[in-house]
């Protein structure tokens, strides 16, 4: 899957999980940029990503993520 496809899918999921319209994707996006992104909705986010891409993340993988771009890279590394 091309990186841009993953990005599009991740944005769709983020819009649904965080109830936000028309999110502009950028690699540097973090929880600070989105109102509803807190520790609880983060769990929903991770589970939704796992389900949509058919992957599993360990807690340490999640803990190491600094922004959405790194999440997209991590997904890419698991589905290739």
């Amino acid at each position: 899957m091309a990186r841009s496809e993953i990005e599009t899918k991740v944005v769709d999921i983020m819009e649904d999980v965080f109830d936000e319209d028309d999110l502009e994707y950028s690699d540097s996006m973090t929880a600070a940029d989105i109102e509803e992104w807190d520790s609880l909705s983060n769990i929903r986010f991770v589970v939704a990503i796992e389900k949509a891409f058919g992957v599993r993340f360990s807690n340490s993988e999640i803990a190491d993520l600094e922004n959405v771009g790194q999440m997209v890279d991590l997904i890419g590394s698991k589905i290739d």
């Binding site: 769990i43 929903r44 589970v47 389900k51 599993r56 993340f57």
Partner: peptide, 14 residues
């Protein structure tokens, strides 16, 4: 198990 350890979520979110 991952979610239990991470945030004491008692069963799968789904």
């Amino acid at each position: 198990a991952g979610r239990w350890h991470e945030g004491k979520v008692p069963f799968a979110l789904d």
